[in-house]
Amino acid sequence: MDLQAGGLMDDEADAVDVSEQIIARYRPLWAALTEPESFEQGERWRVDARIRRLNDLGFDVDELSISTDIGGASVQIQPKVVDAGHHSRRLLRLTGLDVGENQARRLLNDLDSYRAATDRQGDSEELVAHDWLAHVFEAVVHAVPRRLGSKLEPAEVFHEVLEHRWYLSERRGWDVPLPEVVADYVATVLPTKPDEAAVLGVDTQALPVVDASPGGTRTQQ
Rank of each mutant, 00 (worst) to 15 (best):
M1F: 07
M1G: 15
L3F: 04
Q4E: 03
L8Y: 07
L8R: 14
E12H: 04
E12P: 00
S19P: 01
Q21K: 14
I23F: 06
I23L: 13
A24Q: 11
R25Y: 09
Y26E: 09
T34R: 10
T34K: 10
T34H: 08
E35C: 07
P36C: 09
E37R: 13
F39H: 10
Q41T: 05
R44W: 01
R44L: 06
A49G: 08
A49Q: 09
R52I: 09
N55E: 04
D56E: 05
F59D: 05
D60L: 06
D62R: 09
S67T: 08
A73L: 09
V75I: 09
V75Q: 03
I77N: 02
Q78F: 02
P79Q: 08
V81E: 05
V81C: 06
V82N: 08
D83F: 06
G85W: 02
H86E: 10
H86I: 08
H87N: 12
H87A: 13
H87L: 10
S88N: 04
S88D: 01
R89Q: 09
L91V: 06
L92P: 00
R93L: 11
L94Q: 09
L94W: 04
T95Q: 02
T95Y: 00
G100P: 07
E101D: 07
N102S: 13
A104W: 01
A104H: 02
R105I: 08
R106Y: 03
L107V: 11
N109E: 06
N109Y: 02
N109D: 12
L111T: 10
S113R: 15
A116Q: 04
T118W: 02
D119V: 13
Q121T: 13
Q121F: 03
G122F: 01
S124P: 04
S124L: 14
E126W: 00
L127W: 02
V128A: 08
V128T: 10
V128C: 03
H130I: 13
W132G: 14
W132M: 15
V136A: 15
R147F: 02
G149S: 15
S150E: 15
K151L: 12
L152W: 03
P154Q: 13
P154I: 12
A155V: 11
F158M: 14
F158K: 13
E160R: 15
V161A: 08
E163W: 00
R165A: 14
R165G: 15
W166I: 06
Y167L: 13
L168M: 13
E170Y: 05
R171Y: 07
R172D: 11
R172I: 12
W174N: 13
W174C: 12
V176L: 05
P177A: 06
L178C: 11
L178P: 02
P179K: 07
E180V: 14
V182D: 00
Y185H: 07
Y185G: 07
V186N: 11
V189L: 03
T192Y: 03
K193I: 14
P194F: 09
E196L: 14
A197Q: 06
A198M: 06
V199Y: 00
V202E: 13
D203L: 03
T204R: 11
Q205D: 15
L207F: 00
V209C: 15
V210F: 10
D211P: 12
S213W: 03
G216E: 04
G216R: 14
T217K: 15
Q220N: 15
